[in-house]
Write a protein that binds this DNA or RNA. Sequence first.
DNA 1: GCCGACACACTTTTT
DNA 2: GTGTGTCGGC
Length: 786
Amino acid sequence: MSDPFDPPAPGPRPGGIAARAMAARAPVAGPDYVARLNPEQRLAVETTEGPVLVLAGAGTGKTRVLTTRIAHILASQKAWPSQILAVTFTNKAAREMRQRIGDLIGSSVEGMAWLGTFHAIGVKILRRHAELVGLKPSFTILDTDDQIRLMKQVIQAEGIDEKRWPAKQLAALIDSWKNRGLTPKDVPPGEGGAFAGGKGVKFYTAYQDRLKVLNACDFGDLLLENLRLFREHPDVLKEYHERFRYMLVDEYQDTNIAQYLWLRLLAQGRRNICCVGDDDQSIYGWRGAEVDNILRFEKDFPGAVVIRLERNYRSTGHILGAASHLIAHNEGRLGKTLFTDADDPDAPKVQVASSWDSEEEARAIGEEIESLQRQGHALNEMAILVRASFQMRSFEDRFVTLGLNYRVIGGPRFYERAEIRDALAYFRVVAQPADDLAFERIVNTPRRGIGETTVRLLYDHARSRQIPILQAADELTQTSEIAAKTRTSLRELIASFARWRNSLGAIKHTELAETILEESGYTEMWQQDRSADAPGRLENLKELIRSMEGFESLEAFLEHIALVMDRDSAENNDAVSIMTLHSAKGLEFETVFLPGWEEGLFPHQRALDESGRAGLEEERRLAYVGITRAKKRALIWFASNRRIHGLWQSTVPSRFLDELPEKHVDVVEQTSSYGGYNVGGIGNYGASRFDRADPFANTYSTPGWQRAQKNRAEGAKSKSYGASRLIEGELIAKSTGSASAYALGERVFHQKFGYGAITEIEGNKLTVDFEKAGSKKVVDSFVTKG
DNA sequence: GCCGACACACTTTTT
DNA sequence: GTGTGTCGGC
């Protein structure tokens, strides 16, 4: 991307970029892009000057407004692409916005250098002016894991028992201060003593000092240092005032105080700030989001125009009616009422059903899904939205048994996996020899006999001499401070790093990466590992190398992943989505299943205990988000019994059920068709449950079975199909590469359960005695020959 | 320094 | 019930 700081001329410059930009946006110069908007949307697009708050209810075309507004500003030549600041929370949202603006205005979207997440834009600004806040422009960005390890060191350096005062807790505390825009000296005196008997602020200060020594920032700092920069250097702030003629903010209800302050500083310039959000969808209070930011927008920006988008294009009247009635129980909202013009009189009401326990819940929802599928509905249009991730399990178990394709969205992210972080640590040390945290991470992974004692020695030496650990290690291997055996392997490691560094630029970075993992013994470590997930980890490492191909160099790749910790999961398989309510925000499905509406789970007990009324209201907003994800069908479930923390508990239906309007709701009496199945079946658990009242009696007519047949037929055609793969928690049934059935006693591999031997074959269903997971019944398309 | 045994926790998650 | 992280023994 071109230098964002190349200041564009205020007016069109004949020739170069100007001409191209104008040519590119010519297609939208006409009125058609506004013509497709409703009056409120149009107002939101055309009110370009001054502060604007767009309250956009669920499904009211929020993204369309944002993207069209940008297109409009460009088309009317009010600003160049590089003069627009557009901020989102996630990389995904930023990507989507860029894509959709591109659809409207063509290639001049590439000039939008300032479209990105708060953090990405924060880094960009910070790198420009790093020296002004005591950093070098090459500063590294620490993720949560590095943060915690660093804090552990700080705590230990103080001689405090890390057991009593866990680093995690300190991290949460410091994070909350950073979210509120507080540097160590700003922390209110009463709060500073919140950790280790009055040492909270002391640790905060010490941690920040360590960060500076490491030339590093954590995520919170990216904004906090921006604030410091702007406040201490008005000339720099002024530069950005000049630059950002128009500012747009997505999901404003999710901003924390630091982000709010940042926006406010920048908006002081031209005051052309447009925030889009929905107070009813604020579900991130627990991580510092302030609904208050949106509630008091008009006070913060006097003369602000507030526009409400209430015309919903997504859901049926029943769904909107149910959701609106529910959310109306909240106090302290700005108030919107969604409505739709396109109401279908035959649309189903929101359904509420109950089940005995979570397994029956999963079974019944599985049946419902298969029934819908038989009627021709795509699995991609169905989602199960849960409150807490442990609920996903019963669905996964059930769907594996049914052979129903599903994908888990969210969950552990690719770059958070241990093997990926280890590999990245190696790369980081190669690219940045001073990256102590990365070095410490892998110095003894795989095992090299360099234990804690040695690392402590290196660390102490490094600190006393104010040098990076790697250099300290180099020095200490010249002496006899370290035992001979350890010294040899440490020397070897240092030599390896030197060698790899010499190859930087000399050989292709993907090749270098492979070499590093190979020569360090890291790959071998996992090859030797007999645990069930080792093959998956090796596969992930390969995937990591593959994903590096899109980058120029190792350094470019590392810079990218520091901020963009997500990946596209554009898998085109038809599959039911399973995810938490939180990760469902912004998505939509024809059919949405909402299981687990029980007191204590939803609303979650902890939310009630810790945040009282505010907590309850946030839970209710979560319920609102859940229901409004549905276009046509929303099916709510609650179980009478649920196992929580290993104990069976009988449950009380969620209070939210009573808050739904009867007019829009159908209560289904009893859906269980498993008479005699395990009634009162507490304690009856284990593989034998599959044998009761054969839930598979009708299996051979189910889509799952037919799908398995089809998979097998396809597999026979193309042998290269390969193993089942786990991609970003996504379980995709692939064929086995052979039409022939498995044999009893045969060794197989299952992505979730690992290796095992077949003990029983029944059509396409295998009973496998897994080495780690015990006996499970699985569909053969989910295993590969081991 | 390494491996096995016990304790502990266990809502939500992005950057 | 299950996974993770720390302590103690070898």
